[in-house]
Design a protein around this nucleic acid. Structure first.
Lengths: 318, 318
DNA sequence: CTCTCGCTTGAGCATTTGTTCAATGGCGGG
DNA sequence: CCCGCCATTGAACAAATGCTCAAGCGAGAG
């Protein structure tokens, strides 16, 4: 019963083969079954395994005209170096569907580069979903650095810290930040940031050529609140000070300026890499995040954006 | 009724959108229909169009263990720099299924490189199928050069000359050879090769960093014969001299040595780029081509191979 | 204005795919 | 050695997909 590693791999191999016969060679599952000498159901199970285990990856080689146009307009309107718009699924309430895949594709593009890169990663649900869409690679020449601490308020490892799973998937050297995301006092932050490990990570982050970040809203279901990084009371205070969004914890107002407040002095994240030296790509969609995205783009906190059609349209409809 | 270009493109856009909703968002065709406000059949047609027009591309991120192992053994056995083995469809008689896709993927990988490359292309059915699998790209920094003339025996443009469709698809500067594949006399070849255009193409070909070629058999359904480049009588003569295969027209024997004969003196193709300076990748599969492939690999005419599992196994089973 | 041609449409049907469920059988524990 | 657990199997059914064909529609010719 103890399913050995070998069992697993041969099973995946067979799944890959079945998936190949199905998707590439265009066989029907019945044909596959007879070719591999198994029952139709077994074939169906293998094919289905090949998709659920992420072996097959479909890619749509078509810059859907409307999306392309929206992307162009976003670039002009917000003075971005990079913009990508994916089609919206009108009924899905997901805030990652589509952009996660697009973000993964973009990451993959960067990772395939020959010359060594420093890639900085933010945190959050969207990036997590994106990283899950990365194919296995070997990128020993790039370095991946985390902009945020990896310790959640309750002391556990933060679930949405993506650097480990990303580094694991693409086999790249990685530099996490072994400290909490939000600390108790500015003094504590100073202290923690003085550690050698943290110092080198902070320096590396400042050198990042490419940065991927999620964007959090402050109102409604603020990720900071949901994940217990702030209390409802703190949220109210932030809102009162005009906070509309947050990137790796740094809270900013509607014009995309970091708010000078007690909270931001307790954020232990690395500074968001400069848009002068780094491509800083925000990955976010959905009505709740709209004003946060707009602020970040308008204020020049980011110079790249991956979003969906509906959000893009609303961003442009001033 | 005259379907305008605009009609076509918007239709493709819709197809892309439907394909996206289907393959990426995982909608059922019925859901897509209601979301786009069309009938289920219409949705089905769009999805199917998105597939047949090559918009969706499935990719299998799994080096099937057996194939990987075969590839390794091929590399060792024939001293290759590059080998790729794709799974066989046991019942398909196709000589391109699988390797065309694999070849396209490999070409794409090269084309995505930042530093400018010279890519030399052979000719034939396999390469044609491969090129049809290339995604649209913009590669203005690479140069694609043809190793063969583009004029068929009957004076028409050779169907299997792939450089134009390839260059069109990937938007790269390209250098065809405006002359017949096989000329009547060695003198004619000298004369034609003296043209300035041809000269520069020949020089470029010699500089190629990467070369993709098909491999033709001489016995059975020799492409040279089928396409009218040689007569049945000539074929017999070549076989009598020990010919087993041919690359861009150059006929070679079982040990992979170009045969010194009247026919090879009439081949107007560029010389096959040296395996010292270029990666010369043969793309071929099938029992009929087996001895030709083995000869080419053994004789060092090529140092790369893309083939299928069954062929790989037979090549290794000495 | 009407007819014709050719393309598009959607209903209906055949095929393929996905899921459920009871039966099977291997394997460790008692 | 036997029991029971649990993963796996295939039959049967449900859902989704693909195909065919007759009808509809619109553009242009007469």
């Amino acid at each position: 019963m103890a399913r050995t590693r070998d069992d697993d791999t041969t099973r995946l191999d067979e799944a890959a083969r079945a998936g190949w016969l199905y998707y590439v060679a265009g066989n029907t599952q019945e044909e596959i079954a007879s070719k591999l000498g198994i029952s139709r159901q077994a074939a169906q199970r293998l094919v289905s395994l090949s998709v659920t285990s992420g072996l097959v990856r479909v890619r749509l080689d078509h810059p859907i005209a409307a999306c392309l146009e929206l992307a162009e307009r976003l670039k002009t309107r917000f003075d971005l170096r990079y913009a990508e718009v994916v089609p919206s699924d009108p009924t899905s309430a997901s805030t990652t569907l589509g952009i996660a895949e697009a973000c993964a594709t973009e990451m993959e593009r960067r990772l395939k580069q020959e010359n060594p890169l420093v890639i900085a990663m933010g945190t959050g649900r969207t990036l997590k979903a994106a990283v899950e869409n990365l194919p296995p690679m070997t990128c020993e020449h790039h370095r991946i650095v985390s902009l945020t601490g990896n310790i959640a308020p309750d002391g556990s490892a933060s679930v949405y810290n993506v650097i480990f799973s990303m580094a694991d998937q693409v086999k790249a050297p990685h530099y996490p930040m072994p400290l909490p995301v939000i600390v108790s006092t500015p003094e504590e932050r100073r202290l923690l940031h003085r550690q050698t490990v943290v110092q080198s990570t902070l320096h590396l982050a400042a050198e990042a050529e490419v940065t991927f970040v999620g964007v959090g809203e402050i109102a409604a279901n603020a990720p900071l609140l949901v994940d217990g990084f702030i209390t409802p009371k703190e949220r109210e205070e932030l809102l009162a000070m005009g906070a509309v969004g947050e990137i790796v914890g740094w809270v900013f107002d509607a014009r995309g300026r970091l708010i000078e407040c007690a909270f931001n002095e307790r954020v232990a994240s690395a500074p968001i890499p400069s848009t002068e030296t780094s491509e800083v790509i925000a990955v976010a969609m959905g009505p709740a995040k709209r004003s946060a995205i707009r602020a970040a783009a308008e204020g020049g906190l980011v110079n790249g954006l991956i979003t969906d059609e509906a959000t893009a349209e609303r961003l442009l409809r001033n």
